[in-house]
Design a protein around this nucleic acid. Structure first.
Lengths: 193, 193
DNA sequence: ACCTGAACACCGTTCAAGT
DNA sequence: ACCTGAACACCGTTCAAGT
């Protein structure tokens, strides 16, 4: 009776999250089943409920991790770009690339009102979006933006990218036109000096 | 044995659609149950399957009707506005008003890829969006837009509004700031002469 | 043509019980 | 603390049968 997974899983919470992420990626959130995930991992269907009491809790944890991944991508895109204009282009491409590649996950991330401020999903969303505000702060420092508040123009910019991804994901905008439309969208926003 | 609903419902298809729309509006698509709808209407759970073989068929029919309603709203907004600039503002307000009021329905409308072109949902979406293209055609006739193709700028405009609605619905943009952000978004697009 | 009623496999959730 | 196993009420889907 060697203790080869004798009684409990090594890190059940992480295993559930990874498997759930895979299911969402491949088949969408509506196909996500707690029982199926438990069976795939090799525990009873009630075991994951220690960490995720309800289905909603699992979805929220997936959303938090999704926003974290998105934030990393956006920061990387900005860090790799020399100036304001290039950062704007780069962050736009990264945003749409992520949201179209991870369409099902994004649906989970933006589903429902994630509770009031202070909620974990809302907080992780704000953290993920902050790099975009940073870019417009830089633009404001280098040139004159039409708005005094960088957050306001950042919201419009973010909305444009998010809406674009939605139109691509539901097929209104053909996938082949994405790059052109993103370029059009970026051109809509004020240039650097 | 008077024929007071003797054997079959008067118009079961319409009754199912109306009840389903009510459920989606109040509780969201994930809470939509074919069995519950049938029970509410007063037929067996298998009866609606004559008209909607699967759950997906019902959702697609709801999406088609949703796009039809959206199209009507947008046309009304344009018809009530005298010139290009006012039409742009008006159609933007109408779009965001509809998509935030009918948040759950919009989720159904934009869910998944609605199949290839020629599909009923894709067609009704295109029809609903066409008024927006019309506005930019007018703008192009009255002034000089930066793009030769009104459809391209219409897509970016549409994406901005759709994304804005999404950010409002998931709580990133507070409901009280909607009007201001819409105004900011509209101001981003070229003015009339 | 339109609807019923039973059956099947699945699901989320709850809970007493085991180690 | 962590997991099992049985139970409950629900679901979508299928299908032979009724009128």
């Amino acid at each position: 009776m060697s203790a080869a997974r004798p009684y409990h899983h090594g890190n059940l919470r992480r295993a559930v999250l990874d498997q759930a992420a895979a299911v969402v990626h491949d088949r969408g959130a509506s196909e996500l089943s707690l029982r199926e995930i438990a069976a795939t991992i090799g525990v009873t269907h009630a075991a994951p409920r220690r960490y995720f009491p309800g289905r909603q809790d699992l979805l929220e944890a997936l959303a938090v991790e999704g926003f974290a991944r998105l934030g990393v991508r956006l920061r990387e895109a900005i860090a790799a770009s020399p100036d304001y204009t290039e950062q704007l282009r780069s962050v736009a491409r990264s945003y749409v690339e992520f949201t179209t590649t991870e369409a099902n996950l994004v649906e989970v991330m933006f589903a429902h009102k994630h509770g009031a401020e202070g909620h974990s999903v809302a907080d992780s969303a704000t953290a993920a979006f902050s790099p975009i505000v940073q870019v417009f702060r830089l633009g404001q420092a280098q040139s004159r933006l039409p708005h005094h508040d960088p957050e306001r123009i950042a919201v419009v910019f973010l909305a444009t990218l998010q809406g674009l991804a939605g139109l691509v994901n539901c097929g209104v905008v053909p996938a082949g036109h994405v790059d052109d439309v993103v370029a059009d969208a970026v051109a809509q926003f004020p240039d650097g000096p």
